[in-house]
């Protein structure tokens, strides 16, 4: 349907949307969890290895990678759940470091060069788009549920939230598992989109782009990454080549400017609420809106 170039561009945007959502979820409850980066690496490497070396069916390898990433995130979350914000950030960065070093030293995974030559997935773009829709629905439902409100409470004041009966540890385990699974999904898509996987793809550079998308887009709603991942990623495609090489500078500068001027990001909860009220018809006057539906 699209040219190869446009196809790959769209898949890259889908990857950044998914990985930004994966990081946004724990961020919205006050945790700087970098697990999606190494979960993406685990998923990508698993899928590449089993499809190339053991000739697994491609889709089985793809979904197997996602499941493995989710299980890894779950296992790790049992250890990381009690960690504070800073400990979580450093521990997950350390894990990115450890996993990159392990991948570089394992010759059967290609070492520093990585792996390529594994089979393609047909209609990967369709899978990517469907994934974005499913994850968006999941995040939207989560955000507007009791869990979403509990996450918000933990973000505002975790001690108060605990004293009100919110099980922050259990929440952390669930959030990290979901985050790692979404990261694994993103990693699988990106690996098959590129046709190659190597340790540097899912490293610290990825964090810069992800944080930029979350900080600019807004860290309290899933709509921010959805709209700003394409904008931020596609802008360099349309600027002169001489400016593109300063991409990392621009991303870093954008983060700094937004953090100082608009730390809530562009799409805030207030903005989403205002748009929602503008789009949804008002209730009839005199009917009132009370929780039990009775007229006042």
């Amino acid at each position: 349907m699209f040219s190869l170039y446009v196809n790959n561009l769209l898949l890259t945007v889908i990857f950044f949307i998914l990985v930004s959502w994966a990081c946004y979820l724990p961020f919205s409850c006050g945790q700087l969890y970098n697990g999606p980066a190494f979960c993406a690496a685990i998923s990508g490497y698993f899928a590449a290895y089993v499809t190339k070396c053991f000739h697994w069916p491609v889709l089985l390898g793809f979904f197997g990678g996602i499941v493995l990433a989710g299980l890894f995130a779950l296992g790790l979350s049992l250890i990381l759940a009690p960690f504070t914000g800073f400990q979580m950030a450093v521990a997950t960065m350390a894990l990115i470091f450890i996993i990159q070093t392990v991948l570089k030293n394992l010759d059967f995974l290609g070492g520093v060069v990585g792996m390529s030559g594994f089979p393609e997935i047909k209609n990967l773009l369709v899978i990517g788009l469907v994934s974005v829709v499913i994850v968006l629905i999941l995040l939207h439902r989560l955000h507007n549920s009791r869990w979403g409100r509990a996450m918000e409470a933990v973000d505002v004041d975790s001690e108060m939230a605990r004293s009100m009966g919110i099980d922050a540890i259990k929440m952390s385990i669930v959030i990290q598992t979901i985050s790692g699974t979404i990261g694994g999904l993103a990693g699988g898509i990106y690996t098959f989109a590129l046709g190659t996987v190597h340790p540097e793809i899912f490293g610290f550079g990825l964090l810069l782009y992800t944080y930029t998308i979350i900080i600019v887009g807004g860290r309290h709603t899933p709509w921010g990454p959805l709209f700003f991942a394409p904008i931020l990623w596609l802008i360099p495609e349309f600027v002169p080549a001489g400016i593109v090489k300063y991409r990392n500078f621009m991303f870093g500068a954008i983060i700094i400017v937004f953090l100082l001027a608009m730390p809530e990001g562009v799409i805030t909860k207030g903005l989403v609420r205002r748009i929602k009220f503008a789009l949804v018809p008002k209730k009839a006057e005199g009917g009132g809106w009370v929780g039990n539906g009775k007229n006042t």
């Binding site: 961020f27 006050g30 700087l32 914000g85 800073f86 950030a89 610290f204 964090l207 810069l208 944080y211 930029t212 900080i215 090489k245 300063y246 990392n248 500078f249 991303f251 870093g252 500068a253 983060i255 700094i256 953090l259 100082l260 730390p263």
Partner: peptide, 22 residues
């Protein structure tokens, strides 16, 4: 804003690394 402070310093670090590379 603890997390935001962390991210700002990460961004500064990445700008410095990029400056060295360029």
């Amino acid at each position: 804003l603890v997390l935001e402070t962390l991210i700002l310093t990460i961004a500064v670090g990445m700008i410095l690394t990029e400056a060295m590379c360029q």
